[in-house]
Nucleic acid binder design. Structure first.
Length: 602
DNA sequence: TCCCCGAGCGCC
DNA sequence: AAAGGGCGCTCGGGGA
């Protein structure tokens, strides 16, 4: 046994490092005396389901005592870690979705057993203040929370020591946790402190959750458990198709690169060998040499070379612009999607998305790993990479105009309410009121919910100022209740610095942008509509069919024969009513691939 | 060399 | 009066 004497906020902390099986009885005796533990794991990476992933250490703490079990050393260490997790009545964990999926997969303690007794400090932190640090909040990393709530010096030490060690060991940060020796003193002390911090943070944060949001604590843990189950399910990848797609896109990229070099070699000013078409600055320079002088500016004042500009130039016969556009697209598509899917797949060819259930400041979820919320929807080729399970077909269950319905529910606008109740076309109503096309009116409808104004509409719809102003005025005339709500919420946000959603969530709003309050209220409450739907679907025993939640949609893999009825059942679970407004869903069943919901024929 | 950030673009 | 909300990922560039 090795003992580390540490300090946190002036108080002594004793760290015990188990080295041999002879140390285990002391750990067992200590663990037996406690029912509440801070819990954490050190692993080789964050990708729990990759074949080369390993659990290295499990750490438990209670009060000022903390223990380090090097489970990679001996199966008995893992057994003791599993027993302690089982024996606990309460676990305090920072970002529990990760550690509990680790415990599920590598210690054999199922999510259904661990989640109900867990307090996740990541969840608490987001209920106290959902903002990232750069948005003016505390942030949500262990280091940031420690700095804010416990001990700034300890926080700095933690981060500093690992950073310094990386330099000393000549390791990149991403390699550190895999390569560092388990006997390393700094690694041990860093690891020993984490569960202590989770324990202290939990006790500190619990009373800081606003009263209105108290009831969300259990609810958010439930959602986190369901989404962990969905992550664990994984999404089957069509590996041959995906590999072929990646190759094809890289070939396209190569082709366009040669075309670009051709064009550049026509200029005397630039060496084609030196030219990098991925660099916005260099593309700008080349365009200037070619005689183009009109550029918009980016927010930081640099010349803007975006798709709009390239498209415009390509339309005017500038082949170089077209080549750059196609080159960019092919490279981005290959790298962001098919190649990353292949790299992410587990040994059964399944990709496990990492679902951050409270990522956005509005509480909206985000998904990494499979960046599911960013896949192209105008083209099926990327979604075609994913398949329903053997004997299954893909289904999508999405809400019809979820956010606009929320605008109706929150504002109580009679015209909007009636439009939904009677199945009228909301976009047409705005179009008629403003005397513009339905397409422009539709943009305006969404824009107003985003807190936007006529200027944004000019940009998006590419229409003259006067028409944009007329459209926004038309919207306000058609739905006066929404305009009134926007005004009210803006005023409230400006006055108290935050708003409270209909589910009780407190959302801080930047003073300079208090107009965004209405969007926060709509987006956040909409997120809770989907999240409540997930809970209902889970209670109905449908979680094993779910593959991804995507804002206002759930993607599922359903057994072929029961697919229509199961899709309908999921749809019923998601469906709800708020203040008399129906949140209806539209279940859709297609073929085997996700792409078949977007036009692919398989 | 590593890390962070802005620009750009994909989605809801 | 007007104010476009929320994400993830990649790349290049520049600072440490």
């Amino acid at each position: 046994m090795r003992v580390h004497r540490m300090k946190l906020a002036g108080r002594p902390i004793t760290g015990h490092v188990i080295e041999t099986t002879e140390d285990l009885p002391a750990f067992a005796a200590w663990a037996k005396q406690h029912r509440e533990f801070g819990f954490d794991n050190e692993t080789t990476s964050l990708e729990v389901y990759r074949p080369d992933f390993r659990l290295r250490v499990s750490q438990f703490s209670a009060g000022d005592q903390t223990w380090f079990l090097p489970v990679e050393r001996h199966p008995r260490f893992a057994w003791y870690a599993a027993q302690t997790v089982r024996h606990a009545k309460r676990l305090y964990i920072h970002n529990a979705s990760f550690d509990l999926q680790v415990a599920d997969r590598h210690l054999g303690v199922p999510l259904a057993e661990t989640f109900p007794k867990t307090i996740d400090t990541g969840i608490l932190s987001r209920l106290v203040d959902s903002r990232a640090r750069k948005e003016g909040g505390t942030g949500h990393s262990l280091e940031e929370l420690t700095e804010t709530y416990i001990d700034p010096i300890a926080a700095k030490d933690i981060k500093g020591s690992v950073g310094q060690q990386c330099k000393e060991l000549k390791l990149k940060k991403e390699d550190y946790f895999r390569e560092v020796s388990i006997d390393d003193e700094i690694y041990q002390m860093y690891s020993l402190m984490d569960p202590v911090l989770a324990w202290v943070l939990a006790k500190t944060l619990l009373p800081k959750v606003p009263t209105s949001a108290r009831h969300l604590i259990g609810y958010e843990h439930e959602i986190a458990r369901i989404c962990s189950d969905i992550s664990k399910n994984g999404f089957l990848l069509d590996q041959p198709y995906t590999a072929e797609l990646a190759t094809r896109l890289r070939q396209e990229e190569e082709y366009w690169l040669m075309e670009i070099e051709q064009e550049i070699s026509k200029l005397d000013f630039i060496d084609p060998e030196e030219f990098n078409p991925g660099s916005t600055d260099q593309v700008f320079e080349a365009l200037v040499y070619m005689g183009h002088t009109e550029f918009k500016q980016t927010p930081s004042g640099k010349p803007q070379v975006d798709d709009d500009l390239l498209e415009y130039l390509a339309g005017n016969g500038v082949y170089f612009a077209r080549a750059i556009k196609e080159y960019r697209k092919a490279g981005k598509w290959a790298g962001t999607w098919p190649e990353s899917f292949l790299a992410n797949a587990d040994e059964h060819g399944r990709c496990h998305a990492n679902i951050n259930t409270l990522q956005a400041r509005t509480g909206r979820m985000s998904i990494t790993g499979i960046p599911a919320q960013t896949l192209p929807s105008g083209d099926w080729m990327v979604r075609r990479c994913f398949l329903a399970d053997e004997g299954h077909v893909m289904a999508s269950i999405d809400y019809a105009a979820q956010e606009l319905r929320m605008a109706a529910a929150l504002s109580g606008d009679e015209r909007m309410y009636a439009a939904f109740a009677n199945g009228e076309d909301l976009h047409q109503i705005t179009a008629d009121a403003a005397g513009v096309t339905r397409k422009v009116a539709k943009m305006a409808n969404f824009l107003v919910c985003y807190g936007g104004g006529w200027k944004a509409l000019v940009e998006q719809a590419k229409i003259p100022e006067a028409m944009a102003k007329k459209t926004i005025a038309g919207f306000n005339a058609a739905y006066p209740g929404v305009a009134k709500l926007a005004k009210q919420m803006t005023r409230l946000a400006g006055k108290q610095g935050y708003i409270e959603t209909i589910t009780g969530r407190r959302l801080y709003v930047d003073q300079q942008r208090s107009y965004s309050a209405i969007n926060y209220a709509i987006q956040s409450a909409s997120r809770d509509v989907t999240a409540r739907g997930l809970i209902k679907a889970d209670k109905a025993g449908l979680t094993s069919f779910l593959r991804l939640p995507i804002h206002d949609e759930v993607v599922a893999s359903l057994p072929l024969k029961q697919a229509p009825s199961l899709a309908k059942e999921i749809g019923e679970c998601l469906r709800t009513q708020i203040r008399g407004v129906d949140f209806i869903t539209d279940p859709e069943v297609a073929q085997r691939s996700w792409g078949s919901l977007y036009g692919a024929d398989i």
